[in-house]
Design a protein around this nucleic acid. Sequence first.
DNA 1: TCACTTGAAAAACGGTGTTAAGTTAAATAG
DNA 2: CTATTTAACTTAACACCGTTTTTCAAGTGA
Lengths: 214, 214
Amino acid sequence: MTIVGIVERKEREKEELRRKIMTAARKLFVEQGIENTSIRKIAEAIEYSPTVIYLHFPDKESLLQEICREDFAALHAAEASIGRIDDPVQKIRAIGMAYMKFGVEHPEQYQLMFMRRHAPPTADDLKERGDPTCDGYAILEHAVQDALQQGRIRPEYRDLSLICQTLWAGVHGTVAIEITMKSNPWIQLEDFEVRARTMLDVLIRGMCNNEPSS
Amino acid sequence: MTIVGIVERKEREKEELRRKIMTAARKLFVEQGIENTSIRKIAEAIEYSPTVIYLHFPDKESLLQEICREDFAALHAAEASIGRIDDPVQKIRAIGMAYMKFGVEHPEQYQLMFMRRHAPPTADDLKERGDPTCDGYAILEHAVQDALQQGRIRPEYRDLSLICQTLWAGVHGTVAIEITMKSNPWIQLEDFEVRARTMLDVLIRGMCNNEPSS
DNA sequence: TCACTTGAAAAACGGTGTTAAGTTAAATAG
DNA sequence: CTATTTAACTTAACACCGTTTTTCAAGTGA
Protein backbone atom coordinates (compact mmCIF):
# COMPACT_ATOMS: atom_id res chain seq x y z
CA MET A 1 0.00 0.00 0.00
CA THR A 2 1.31 3.38 -0.98
CA ILE A 3 1.64 6.13 1.49
CA VAL A 4 -0.01 9.26 0.17
CA GLY A 5 3.03 11.39 0.77
CA ILE A 6 5.24 9.34 -1.45
CA VAL A 7 3.97 10.72 -4.70
CA GLU A 8 4.26 14.20 -3.35
CA ARG A 9 7.81 13.57 -2.33
CA LYS A 10 8.52 12.37 -5.84
CA GLU A 11 7.04 15.48 -7.33
CA ARG A 12 9.04 17.56 -4.93
CA GLU A 13 12.22 15.76 -5.93
CA LYS A 14 11.38 16.17 -9.57
CA GLU A 15 10.86 19.88 -9.10
CA GLU A 16 14.10 20.07 -7.16
CA LEU A 17 16.00 18.50 -10.01
CA ARG A 18 14.40 20.89 -12.45
CA ARG A 19 15.54 23.80 -10.32
CA LYS A 20 18.98 22.29 -10.04
CA ILE A 21 19.22 22.13 -13.82
CA MET A 22 18.15 25.71 -14.27
CA THR A 23 20.42 27.19 -11.66
CA ALA A 24 23.38 25.17 -12.89
CA ALA A 25 22.65 26.23 -16.45
CA ARG A 26 22.40 29.89 -15.54
CA LYS A 27 25.60 29.64 -13.52
CA LEU A 28 27.42 28.20 -16.51
CA PHE A 29 25.95 30.84 -18.81
CA VAL A 30 27.14 33.61 -16.59
CA GLU A 31 30.56 32.16 -15.89
CA GLN A 32 31.48 30.64 -19.23
CA GLY A 33 29.22 32.34 -21.72
CA ILE A 34 26.15 31.09 -23.48
CA GLU A 35 27.80 29.43 -26.46
CA ASN A 36 30.30 27.62 -24.26
CA THR A 37 27.54 26.04 -22.23
CA SER A 38 26.43 22.67 -23.50
CA ILE A 39 23.84 20.22 -22.30
CA ARG A 40 26.63 17.86 -21.43
CA LYS A 41 28.39 20.43 -19.28
CA ILE A 42 25.19 21.26 -17.45
CA ALA A 43 24.65 17.57 -16.83
CA GLU A 44 28.16 17.21 -15.51
CA ALA A 45 27.65 20.18 -13.20
CA ILE A 46 24.63 18.58 -11.56
CA GLU A 47 26.21 15.12 -11.65
CA TYR A 48 23.54 13.54 -13.78
CA SER A 49 23.55 12.13 -17.26
CA PRO A 50 22.71 14.52 -20.12
CA THR A 51 19.48 12.67 -20.79
CA VAL A 52 17.78 13.67 -17.55
CA ILE A 53 17.66 17.22 -18.80
CA TYR A 54 15.36 16.03 -21.55
CA LEU A 55 12.98 14.64 -18.94
CA HIS A 56 12.45 18.19 -17.74
CA PHE A 57 12.80 20.27 -20.90
CA PRO A 58 11.89 19.27 -24.44
CA ASP A 59 15.08 20.72 -25.84
CA LYS A 60 17.88 23.14 -25.17
CA GLU A 61 15.98 26.08 -26.60
CA SER A 62 13.15 25.54 -24.13
CA LEU A 63 15.60 25.46 -21.27
CA LEU A 64 17.03 28.75 -22.49
CA GLN A 65 13.58 30.27 -22.74
CA GLU A 66 12.66 29.11 -19.28
CA ILE A 67 15.77 30.74 -17.85
CA CYS A 68 14.95 33.77 -19.94
CA ARG A 69 11.53 33.94 -18.39
CA GLU A 70 13.00 34.06 -14.92
CA ASP A 71 15.44 36.72 -15.99
CA PHE A 72 12.62 38.82 -17.33
CA ALA A 73 11.12 38.61 -13.90
CA ALA A 74 14.42 39.84 -12.47
CA LEU A 75 14.44 42.78 -14.85
CA HIS A 76 10.86 43.52 -13.95
CA ALA A 77 11.82 43.46 -10.30
CA ALA A 78 14.70 45.84 -10.95
CA GLU A 79 12.38 48.27 -12.64
CA ALA A 80 9.65 47.82 -10.08
CA SER A 81 12.07 48.52 -7.26
CA ILE A 82 12.31 52.11 -8.41
CA GLY A 83 10.58 54.13 -5.79
CA ARG A 84 7.56 56.23 -6.52
CA ILE A 85 8.50 59.14 -8.77
CA ASP A 86 5.79 61.64 -9.47
CA ASP A 87 7.36 63.35 -12.44
CA PRO A 88 6.68 60.91 -15.30
CA VAL A 89 9.69 62.11 -17.27
CA GLN A 90 11.97 61.49 -14.33
CA LYS A 91 10.29 58.14 -13.98
CA ILE A 92 11.13 57.32 -17.59
CA ARG A 93 14.71 58.31 -16.95
CA ALA A 94 14.90 56.07 -13.90
CA ILE A 95 13.43 53.14 -15.79
CA GLY A 96 15.91 53.58 -18.60
CA MET A 97 18.78 53.73 -16.15
CA ALA A 98 17.61 50.61 -14.33
CA TYR A 99 17.28 48.82 -17.64
CA MET A 100 20.78 49.68 -18.78
CA LYS A 101 22.24 48.89 -15.40
CA PHE A 102 20.62 45.48 -15.48
CA GLY A 103 22.01 44.91 -18.95
CA VAL A 104 25.64 45.60 -18.16
CA GLU A 105 25.51 43.86 -14.82
CA HIS A 106 24.00 40.71 -16.31
CA PRO A 107 25.40 40.63 -19.83
CA GLU A 108 24.86 36.93 -20.44
CA GLN A 109 21.27 37.10 -19.32
CA TYR A 110 20.78 40.23 -21.36
CA GLN A 111 22.04 38.46 -24.44
CA LEU A 112 19.71 35.60 -23.74
CA MET A 113 16.78 37.96 -23.41
CA PHE A 114 17.33 40.61 -26.05
CA MET A 115 20.17 39.68 -28.35
CA ARG A 116 19.07 36.38 -29.81
CA ARG A 117 16.53 35.66 -32.47
CA HIS A 118 13.69 33.89 -30.75
CA ALA A 119 12.25 30.65 -31.97
CA PRO A 120 8.96 30.77 -33.85
CA PRO A 121 5.83 30.70 -31.67
CA THR A 122 4.82 27.14 -30.92
CA ALA A 123 1.10 27.93 -30.72
CA ASP A 124 0.86 26.05 -27.43
CA ASP A 125 3.09 28.59 -25.86
CA LEU A 126 0.98 31.37 -27.25
CA LYS A 127 -2.07 30.75 -25.11
CA GLU A 128 -0.31 29.12 -22.19
CA ARG A 129 0.95 32.25 -20.55
CA GLY A 130 1.25 35.89 -21.19
CA ASP A 131 4.14 37.69 -22.73
CA PRO A 132 7.08 37.46 -20.34
CA THR A 133 8.62 40.63 -21.66
CA CYS A 134 5.55 42.75 -21.21
CA ASP A 135 5.89 43.03 -17.47
CA GLY A 136 8.92 45.21 -17.76
CA TYR A 137 7.64 46.81 -20.89
CA ALA A 138 4.36 47.65 -19.19
CA ILE A 139 6.15 49.69 -16.57
CA LEU A 140 7.70 51.84 -19.25
CA GLU A 141 4.42 52.05 -21.11
CA HIS A 142 2.68 53.24 -17.99
CA ALA A 143 5.19 55.96 -17.35
CA VAL A 144 5.04 57.14 -20.95
CA GLN A 145 1.27 57.09 -20.79
CA ASP A 146 1.43 59.38 -17.77
CA ALA A 147 3.83 61.67 -19.53
CA LEU A 148 1.52 61.84 -22.52
CA GLN A 149 -1.48 62.65 -20.40
CA GLN A 150 0.36 65.36 -18.56
CA GLY A 151 1.38 66.95 -21.82
CA ARG A 152 5.05 66.31 -21.27
CA ILE A 153 5.62 64.74 -24.68
CA ARG A 154 6.15 66.83 -27.77
CA PRO A 155 2.97 67.12 -29.81
CA GLU A 156 4.37 65.29 -32.83
CA TYR A 157 4.59 62.07 -30.81
CA ARG A 158 1.18 60.66 -30.08
CA ASP A 159 1.73 56.96 -30.67
CA LEU A 160 2.44 55.30 -27.35
CA SER A 161 4.21 52.24 -28.68
CA LEU A 162 6.27 54.27 -31.13
CA ILE A 163 7.52 56.37 -28.24
CA CYS A 164 8.26 53.32 -26.12
CA GLN A 165 10.03 51.53 -28.91
CA THR A 166 12.18 54.53 -29.66
CA LEU A 167 13.20 54.84 -26.03
CA TRP A 168 13.79 51.12 -25.88
CA ALA A 169 15.93 51.16 -29.02
CA GLY A 170 18.08 53.90 -27.54
CA VAL A 171 18.82 52.16 -24.28
CA HIS A 172 19.09 48.78 -25.93
CA GLY A 173 21.62 50.12 -28.40
CA THR A 174 23.69 51.51 -25.58
CA VAL A 175 23.72 48.21 -23.72
CA ALA A 176 24.22 46.08 -26.82
CA ILE A 177 27.21 48.11 -27.94
CA GLU A 178 28.72 47.87 -24.49
CA ILE A 179 28.34 44.10 -24.43
CA THR A 180 29.44 43.48 -27.99
CA MET A 181 32.19 46.03 -28.37
CA LYS A 182 33.71 46.15 -24.92
CA SER A 183 36.39 43.66 -25.92
CA ASN A 184 36.87 45.07 -29.40
CA PRO A 185 40.32 46.60 -29.67
CA TRP A 186 39.38 48.82 -32.60
CA ILE A 187 36.90 50.90 -30.72
CA GLN A 188 37.54 52.53 -27.43
CA LEU A 189 34.20 53.25 -25.88
CA GLU A 190 33.60 56.14 -23.59
CA ASP A 191 32.70 55.32 -20.02
CA PHE A 192 29.45 53.43 -19.90
CA GLU A 193 27.88 55.59 -17.21
CA VAL A 194 28.52 58.66 -19.30
CA ARG A 195 27.13 57.12 -22.44
CA ALA A 196 24.07 55.86 -20.62
CA ARG A 197 23.35 59.26 -19.11
CA THR A 198 23.96 61.04 -22.39
CA MET A 199 21.62 58.70 -24.22
CA LEU A 200 18.85 59.30 -21.74
CA ASP A 201 19.38 63.05 -21.83
CA VAL A 202 19.27 63.10 -25.60
CA LEU A 203 16.23 60.85 -25.86
CA ILE A 204 14.27 62.79 -23.30
CA ARG A 205 15.21 66.16 -24.68
CA GLY A 206 14.30 64.97 -28.15
CA MET A 207 10.94 63.60 -27.14
CA CYS A 208 9.73 65.75 -24.33
CA ASN A 209 8.62 69.33 -24.11
CA ASN A 210 11.26 71.69 -22.87
CA GLU A 211 11.30 71.54 -19.12
CA PRO A 212 13.90 72.35 -16.53
CA SER A 213 16.56 69.78 -17.38
CA SER A 214 17.40 67.36 -14.60
CA MET B 1 63.99 25.54 -66.34
CA THR B 2 61.03 27.16 -64.74
CA ILE B 3 58.74 29.34 -66.72
CA VAL B 4 58.17 32.55 -64.83
CA GLY B 5 54.42 32.63 -65.38
CA ILE B 6 53.76 29.31 -63.76
CA VAL B 7 54.09 30.45 -60.19
CA GLU B 8 51.93 33.43 -60.92
CA ARG B 9 49.26 31.23 -62.39
CA LYS B 10 49.32 29.15 -59.22
CA GLU B 11 48.92 32.19 -57.09
CA ARG B 12 46.07 33.31 -59.27
CA GLU B 13 44.37 29.95 -58.90
CA LYS B 14 44.88 30.01 -55.18
CA GLU B 15 43.38 33.46 -54.97
CA GLU B 16 40.47 32.31 -57.11
CA LEU B 17 39.71 29.47 -54.73
CA ARG B 18 39.93 31.82 -51.79
CA ARG B 19 37.40 34.11 -53.42
CA LYS B 20 35.21 31.14 -54.23
CA ILE B 21 35.20 30.15 -50.55
CA MET B 22 34.31 33.62 -49.38
CA THR B 23 31.50 34.23 -51.84
CA ALA B 24 30.05 30.79 -51.19
CA ALA B 25 30.25 31.38 -47.47
CA ARG B 26 28.57 34.75 -47.68
CA LYS B 27 25.86 33.34 -49.90
CA LEU B 28 25.15 30.64 -47.36
CA PHE B 29 25.14 33.16 -44.52
CA VAL B 30 22.62 35.32 -46.27
CA GLU B 31 20.38 32.51 -47.43
CA GLN B 32 20.49 30.14 -44.48
CA GLY B 33 21.67 32.24 -41.58
CA ILE B 34 25.01 32.39 -39.88
CA GLU B 35 24.58 29.60 -37.39
CA ASN B 36 23.24 27.25 -40.04
CA THR B 37 26.36 27.66 -42.12
CA SER B 38 29.06 25.11 -41.44
CA ILE B 39 32.49 24.57 -42.90
CA ARG B 40 31.23 21.36 -44.40
CA LYS B 41 28.33 23.08 -46.14
CA ILE B 42 30.62 25.74 -47.55
CA ALA B 43 32.93 23.01 -48.79
CA GLU B 44 30.05 21.20 -50.40
CA ALA B 45 28.91 24.38 -52.09
CA ILE B 46 32.25 24.88 -53.77
CA GLU B 47 32.68 21.14 -54.42
CA TYR B 48 35.85 20.75 -52.42
CA SER B 49 36.66 18.89 -49.27
CA PRO B 50 36.25 20.76 -45.97
CA THR B 51 39.96 20.72 -45.30
CA VAL B 52 40.77 22.89 -48.28
CA ILE B 53 39.20 25.82 -46.45
CA TYR B 54 41.87 25.51 -43.78
CA LEU B 55 44.53 26.02 -46.43
CA HIS B 56 43.15 29.52 -46.94
CA PHE B 57 41.90 30.48 -43.49
CA PRO B 58 43.34 29.43 -40.15
CA ASP B 59 39.91 28.76 -38.72
CA LYS B 60 36.24 29.52 -39.14
CA GLU B 61 36.42 32.68 -37.09
CA SER B 62 39.05 34.12 -39.41
CA LEU B 63 36.88 33.36 -42.40
CA LEU B 64 34.03 35.19 -40.69
CA GLN B 65 36.23 38.17 -39.96
CA GLU B 66 37.48 38.31 -43.50
CA ILE B 67 33.93 38.37 -44.81
CA CYS B 68 33.17 40.96 -42.17
CA ARG B 69 35.96 43.12 -43.46
CA GLU B 70 34.50 43.14 -46.94
CA ASP B 71 31.09 43.95 -45.55
CA PHE B 72 32.50 46.90 -43.70
CA ALA B 73 33.75 48.12 -47.03
CA ALA B 74 30.21 47.75 -48.39
CA LEU B 75 28.81 49.78 -45.51
CA HIS B 76 31.46 52.37 -46.05
CA ALA B 77 30.50 52.52 -49.72
CA ALA B 78 26.84 52.94 -48.81
CA GLU B 79 27.68 55.87 -46.56
CA ALA B 80 30.14 57.33 -49.02
CA SER B 81 27.57 57.20 -51.80
CA ILE B 82 25.60 59.89 -50.02
CA GLY B 83 25.93 62.97 -52.14
CA ARG B 84 27.48 66.11 -50.87
CA ILE B 85 25.29 67.68 -48.20
CA ASP B 86 26.38 71.04 -46.92
CA ASP B 87 24.31 71.15 -43.76
CA PRO B 88 26.26 68.91 -41.35
CA VAL B 89 23.15 68.04 -39.36
CA GLN B 90 21.37 66.89 -42.48
CA LYS B 91 24.49 64.98 -43.33
CA ILE B 92 24.37 63.21 -40.00
CA ARG B 93 20.76 62.34 -40.64
CA ALA B 94 21.59 60.92 -44.05
CA ILE B 95 24.44 58.85 -42.65
CA GLY B 96 22.21 57.45 -39.95
CA MET B 97 19.56 56.56 -42.48
CA ALA B 98 22.05 54.87 -44.77
CA TYR B 99 23.42 52.92 -41.83
CA MET B 100 20.03 51.66 -40.72
CA LYS B 101 19.00 50.88 -44.27
CA PHE B 102 22.14 48.82 -44.73
CA GLY B 103 21.40 46.98 -41.50
CA VAL B 104 17.89 45.86 -42.33
CA GLU B 105 18.72 45.09 -45.93
CA HIS B 106 21.69 42.92 -44.96
CA PRO B 107 20.71 41.50 -41.60
CA GLU B 108 23.08 38.54 -41.66
CA GLN B 109 26.03 40.72 -42.55
CA TYR B 110 24.95 43.22 -39.94
CA GLN B 111 24.91 40.52 -37.30
CA LEU B 112 28.34 39.43 -38.39
CA MET B 113 29.64 42.97 -38.12
CA PHE B 114 27.95 44.44 -35.07
CA MET B 115 26.08 41.78 -33.14
CA ARG B 116 28.78 39.29 -32.24
CA ARG B 117 31.46 39.51 -29.65
CA HIS B 118 34.73 39.75 -31.49
CA ALA B 119 37.66 37.53 -30.80
CA PRO B 120 40.51 38.99 -28.77
CA PRO B 121 43.11 40.84 -30.82
CA THR B 122 45.76 38.49 -32.13
CA ALA B 123 48.57 41.06 -31.95
CA ASP B 124 49.58 40.20 -35.50
CA ASP B 125 46.30 41.51 -36.73
CA LEU B 126 46.80 44.67 -34.77
CA LYS B 127 49.64 46.08 -36.78
CA GLU B 128 48.83 44.37 -40.06
CA ARG B 129 46.06 46.66 -41.17
CA GLY B 130 43.96 49.48 -39.90
CA ASP B 131 40.65 49.25 -38.19
CA PRO B 132 38.11 47.99 -40.71
CA THR B 133 35.23 49.66 -38.93
CA CYS B 134 36.78 53.08 -38.82
CA ASP B 135 36.15 53.86 -42.46
CA GLY B 136 32.44 54.09 -41.95
CA TYR B 137 32.89 55.53 -38.50
CA ALA B 138 35.22 58.21 -39.86
CA ILE B 139 32.50 59.49 -42.16
CA LEU B 140 30.20 60.02 -39.22
CA GLU B 141 33.00 61.53 -37.18
CA HIS B 142 33.74 63.99 -39.92
CA ALA B 143 30.15 65.12 -40.19
CA VAL B 144 29.87 65.53 -36.43
CA GLN B 145 33.13 67.44 -36.40
CA ASP B 146 31.67 69.83 -38.97
CA ALA B 147 28.53 70.23 -36.93
CA LEU B 148 30.60 70.98 -33.85
CA GLN B 149 32.66 73.59 -35.65
CA GLN B 150 29.61 75.27 -37.05
CA GLY B 151 28.08 75.50 -33.61
CA ARG B 152 25.22 73.20 -34.44
CA ILE B 153 25.70 70.96 -31.42
CA ARG B 154 24.32 71.89 -28.03
CA PRO B 155 27.01 73.36 -25.80
CA GLU B 156 26.88 70.54 -23.25
CA TYR B 157 28.23 68.09 -25.82
CA ARG B 158 31.85 68.78 -26.64
CA ASP B 159 33.29 65.28 -26.75
CA LEU B 160 33.38 64.14 -30.36
CA SER B 161 33.46 60.42 -29.71
CA LEU B 162 30.79 60.62 -27.04
CA ILE B 163 28.49 62.29 -29.55
CA CYS B 164 29.31 59.74 -32.23
CA GLN B 165 28.83 56.81 -29.90
CA THR B 166 25.50 58.11 -28.72
CA LEU B 167 24.27 58.52 -32.27
CA TRP B 168 25.64 55.13 -33.15
CA ALA B 169 23.95 53.50 -30.17
CA GLY B 170 20.63 54.97 -31.22
CA VAL B 171 20.70 53.74 -34.79
CA HIS B 172 22.27 50.45 -33.79
CA GLY B 173 19.54 49.83 -31.26
CA THR B 174 16.91 50.47 -33.88
CA VAL B 175 18.48 48.02 -36.32
CA ALA B 176 19.28 45.42 -33.68
CA ILE B 177 15.74 45.39 -32.37
CA GLU B 178 14.38 45.05 -35.87
CA ILE B 179 16.63 42.09 -36.60
CA THR B 180 16.19 40.36 -33.27
CA MET B 181 12.54 41.03 -32.58
CA LYS B 182 10.99 41.01 -36.03
CA SER B 183 9.98 37.38 -35.63
CA ASN B 184 9.04 37.70 -31.97
CA PRO B 185 5.30 37.15 -31.58
CA TRP B 186 5.14 38.97 -28.26
CA ILE B 187 6.12 42.32 -29.58
CA GLN B 188 4.58 43.96 -32.56
CA LEU B 189 7.01 46.54 -33.78
CA GLU B 190 5.95 49.70 -35.48
CA ASP B 191 6.96 50.12 -39.09
CA PHE B 192 10.71 50.20 -39.39
CA GLU B 193 10.82 53.30 -41.55
CA VAL B 194 8.82 55.19 -38.97
CA ARG B 195 10.97 54.01 -36.10
CA ALA B 196 14.13 54.85 -37.96
CA ARG B 197 12.95 58.34 -38.80
CA THR B 198 11.70 58.92 -35.28
CA MET B 199 14.98 57.81 -33.79
CA LEU B 200 16.95 60.19 -35.97
CA ASP B 201 14.58 63.05 -35.22
CA VAL B 202 14.84 62.47 -31.50
CA LEU B 203 18.61 62.06 -31.51
CA ILE B 204 19.18 65.16 -33.57
CA ARG B 205 16.73 67.26 -31.64
CA GLY B 206 18.29 66.08 -28.43
CA MET B 207 21.84 66.85 -29.50
CA CYS B 208 21.64 69.79 -31.79
CA ASN B 209 20.75 73.40 -31.28
CA ASN B 210 17.24 74.27 -32.23
CA GLU B 211 17.13 74.90 -35.93
CA PRO B 212 14.37 74.81 -38.49
CA SER B 213 13.37 71.15 -38.22
CA SER B 214 13.71 69.17 -41.42
C1' DT C 1 6.53 -13.79 -6.47
C1' DC C 2 5.63 -11.69 -10.85
C1' DA C 3 4.36 -8.15 -14.03
C1' DC C 4 4.69 -3.37 -14.65
C1' DT C 5 5.82 1.34 -14.30
C1' DT C 6 9.40 4.76 -13.73
C1' DG C 7 13.94 7.35 -13.38
C1' DA C 8 18.17 7.28 -14.92
C1' DA C 9 22.06 5.96 -17.72
C1' DA C 10 24.67 4.03 -21.91
C1' DA C 11 25.03 3.90 -26.37
C1' DA C 12 24.23 5.57 -30.64
C1' DC C 13 23.04 9.02 -34.60
C1' DG C 14 24.09 12.68 -37.30
C1' DG C 15 26.14 16.89 -37.02
C1' DT C 16 30.07 20.36 -35.82
C1' DG C 17 35.16 22.54 -36.08
C1' DT C 18 39.62 20.93 -36.66
C1' DT C 19 43.90 18.03 -37.38
C1' DA C 20 46.88 14.25 -38.98
C1' DA C 21 47.85 11.12 -42.22
C1' DG C 22 47.63 9.73 -46.84
C1' DT C 23 47.36 10.29 -52.00
C1' DT C 24 48.19 12.13 -56.35
C1' DA C 25 49.44 15.15 -59.77
C1' DA C 26 52.54 18.73 -61.13
C1' DA C 27 57.02 21.00 -61.13
C1' DT C 28 61.77 20.63 -60.61
C1' DA C 29 66.60 18.74 -60.96
C1' DG C 30 69.89 15.59 -62.78
C1' DC D 1 63.59 11.20 -69.94
C1' DT D 2 63.57 9.90 -65.29
C1' DA D 3 63.81 10.44 -60.38
C1' DT D 4 62.67 13.36 -56.69
C1' DT D 5 60.58 16.84 -54.38
C1' DT D 6 56.72 19.79 -53.58
C1' DA D 7 52.26 21.27 -53.36
C1' DA D 8 47.16 20.59 -53.53
C1' DC D 9 43.86 18.01 -52.13
C1' DT D 10 41.22 14.16 -49.86
C1' DT D 11 40.27 10.65 -46.47
C1' DA D 12 40.01 9.43 -41.90
C1' DA D 13 39.99 10.53 -37.46
C1' DC D 14 39.35 13.26 -32.94
C1' DA D 15 36.65 15.48 -29.69
C1' DC D 16 32.85 17.74 -29.17
C1' DC D 17 27.67 18.97 -29.80
C1' DG D 18 22.15 18.27 -29.34
C1' DT D 19 19.13 14.65 -29.37
C1' DT D 20 16.97 9.85 -29.53
C1' DT D 21 16.87 5.03 -28.76
C1' DT D 22 17.86 1.40 -26.07
C1' DT D 23 18.98 -0.70 -21.83
C1' DC D 24 18.86 -1.35 -16.99
C1' DA D 25 17.67 -1.39 -12.35
C1' DA D 26 14.83 -0.04 -8.62
C1' DG D 27 10.40 0.53 -6.83
C1' DT D 28 5.14 -0.49 -6.99
C1' DG D 29 0.81 -3.09 -7.31
C1' DA D 30 -1.52 -7.32 -7.36
